[in-house]
Simulated assay, not measured.
Amino acid sequence: MTVEIERDALLGALQQVNGVIEARNTMEILSNILFVAQEGLLTVTGTDIDIEANATTPVVGEIKTTLPSDKILTAVKSFKAGKLTIAEVPGRAAVTVKQGRGVRTISTLGADAFPKREALKNAASFRLAGDALLRLFGTCRVAQSRDETRYYLNGIFLHAVEGELRAAATDGHRLMRADMALPDAAKALADVIVPTKAVTQMIQLLGSASGDVDIEVNDKAIRFQLGNATIISNLVDGTYPNYDRVIPDVGAHVIKMKREDFTGPVSSVSAIVNAEGDKFKVRAVALDFTTGDDAYEVSARDATGTSATEPLEASYSGSGIRFGLNSQYAREVAGVFAEGSLLTLSLNDPASPIRVTSDKDDDLVGVLMPYRV
């Protein structure tokens, strides 16, 4: 069996599916990409069992085999733009990839051993604009948990509420919530947790392609299709906590400042007490609004006595307060909001959650948990 295909088209398809393949696998076949060419279309598929990605591209000829993902990707990259010929080697479990006089020979595994995924049954179907889905996933991804003991937080919670399609994520230290108008077809959407890996793959895909995304989801899995690419993932099997209880109303202390006037000083003071080579890292910064006369500041100090202070250009209403934040979490949550936006941070006391909103992002709410300083 032999196929002829454009190098750039094949490279693009391989890059779309390669991200789901793990570097180490207990099953050799999971390190391979499935190639199926028939009726003028090549479909390449990668999987780690929990998530599958495939992409299609025009082709001439037929083939059905699997190739090691790292080797075929490297081989295709090594050729220049133009047509490639992929042909099975008679009497061997191998293929040749040719362009002109250049040849790469790669071992194969049989396609029959590649895991087959069943179609979704009893699935709800709806369509979202790609930029809207990117907004939901891209803004909430910073708050996803990496703690495997609380596996139900390892992803983004997607659900319908009060005429909105809502995404939320939290790791217990920070929280992000994003809303968009609920499509009519999604009104019957059940609560689902989309795992981190699927979120990452969709963000990468949406960053390189535009258009509407067709979504199918049941109680076990979710399927996204954008153009010639498809991602199918198992859902996280668990119950997401009632995160709304953590989101406070506007508190007694209200701080308003430009996003960059917040993230810049926080980054500056944090960098001084976390210099390269320091054995112990200082995560906390202190925000001081007790001085009055608009002389507000952010500071950080390490155990050796090294310290840094920067003024904060902010407006403040309240009776004076000093509280701490994790500098990394604060920068990441603030960074989700629009460039140049006016952030509003509000809280009731130094031990209470901090609500974060902005004047340019009505669809977003963030929460930062306080840090002892």
Rank of each mutant, 00 (worst) to 15 (best):
L128G: 04
V44R: 02
F114Y: 15
G366K: 02
L312A: 04
E62K: 15
Y316L: 04
A221Q: 15
T230E: 13
D214V: 09
V199K: 02
V44C: 04
S341V: 01
R331I: 11
I272K: 01
L182F: 06
V95C: 02
L205A: 13
F35M: 00
L342P: 00
V20F: 00
V250F: 04
S125F: 12
A23Q: 05
I156S: 05
V76H: 00
V356A: 05
D237L: 03
A198V: 04
A275G: 11
L11V: 11
K220E: 15
Y296H: 15
I255Q: 05
A55K: 02
N228D: 13
T309H: 07
V59K: 06
A295H: 10
K98T: 15
R372A: 10
I215N: 06
I86C: 08
L10M: 15
A185I: 00
T108Y: 06
I86D: 03
L312I: 08
D249T: 12
T105V: 09
N218D: 14
G91T: 02
A209V: 06
L206I: 13
F35H: 01
D70E: 04
T309V: 13
T45G: 11
E313L: 09
R141M: 12
D50I: 02
A81E: 13
I215Y: 11
A129Y: 06
L287V: 04
A53G: 08
L226V: 09
N218M: 13
M202C: 15
G12K: 09
E260N: 08
A338H: 08
L73T: 15
S78V: 09
A186V: 07
L364H: 07
R24F: 10
L11N: 05
I5M: 10
T2E: 11
G100P: 08
R245G: 03
V97E: 02
T306S: 14
T263N: 00
L34T: 03
L10W: 13
Q99C: 10
M257T: 14
S268M: 14
V236I: 15
G335I: 04
Y371S: 13
I255Y: 05
P311A: 05
V17G: 12
G138T: 00
T239D: 11
A81V: 10
G207K: 06
R283D: 04
D8C: 05
R7L: 12
L189D: 03
A23K: 12
A119S: 14
H159V: 00
G100Q: 10
R135L: 13
V254S: 03
G305V: 10
A181M: 09
R7N: 04
A81M: 05
A81R: 07
D293L: 09
K116W: 01
D214N: 12
N242I: 07
